[in-house]
Computed example of a mutant assay.
Amino acid sequence: MEDLKTNITLDFLRISNLLSRYGSKMVADVGLKSIQQWVILRTIINRGEISIGELKEEMLVTKQNMTGMINRLQKSNLVTLFQDSEDKRRTRVKITDEGHRVYEQLKSLRNDFNSKTYHIYNDQEILVLSDLLNRLIGHLKEE
């Protein structure tokens, strides 16, 4: 069983490398510099607006790394920063019209990729896979 667990871990690393390769191509096609920028845009779109601290927690990176990534997105006119109305020490981020445009381009590429990638699973298997992965991520975040 230990060998199987090790193989699963190594498979995750291989999958990560493959997904990074495909993801890097997709983001480059719409002018983004990294997959992380895509994840940040998606998170902001899903939340409406978010603090840099909340983004940092969501992305599992340091505040310095998050600040750098947000600054690059701001220079590209994909996000805008503003002061939190309730806590002046907190900086919040929201997406710009240009950010929405870029994200919409990515959605089309992502949907094509998802169709090609996940057609080997039926809907029930996709639900089970999603649940298993989310449980593992939650567990690893607690470690």
Rank of each mutant, 00 (worst) to 15 (best):
L4S: 12
L4T: 10
K5A: 12
K5D: 07
I8H: 10
I8N: 01
F12T: 03
I15V: 01
S16T: 07
N17E: 11
L18F: 14
L19Y: 00
R21Q: 07
A28P: 01
D29L: 05
D29G: 10
K33D: 14
Q37A: 00
W38M: 06
V39F: 12
I40R: 04
I40V: 06
R42I: 00
T43M: 11
N46C: 04
N46T: 02
G48R: 01
G48F: 01
I50E: 05
I50W: 00
I52D: 03
E54D: 15
E54H: 09
K56F: 02
E57T: 07
E58H: 09
E58T: 10
M59P: 00
M59R: 05
T62L: 02
K63F: 10
Q64V: 09
M66V: 00
M66D: 01
M66S: 03
G68W: 10
G68N: 11
M69I: 07
I70E: 02
I70H: 04
Q74V: 08
L78G: 02
T80M: 02
Q83Y: 12
S85V: 07
E86N: 08
R90Y: 08
R92V: 02
V93P: 02
K94G: 03
D97V: 06
E98N: 08
G99P: 05
R101E: 06
V102A: 01
Y103F: 15
E104G: 05
L106C: 04
K107N: 09
K107M: 10
L109T: 02
D112S: 14
D112I: 15
F113D: 07
Y118W: 15
H119K: 15
I120P: 08
I120H: 13
D123F: 04
Q124C: 07
E125P: 04
I126D: 06
L127C: 12
L127F: 09
L127Q: 12
L129G: 04
D131I: 10
L133Q: 13
R135K: 15
L136K: 13
I137Y: 15
I137C: 12
G138I: 02
L140A: 11
E143H: 13
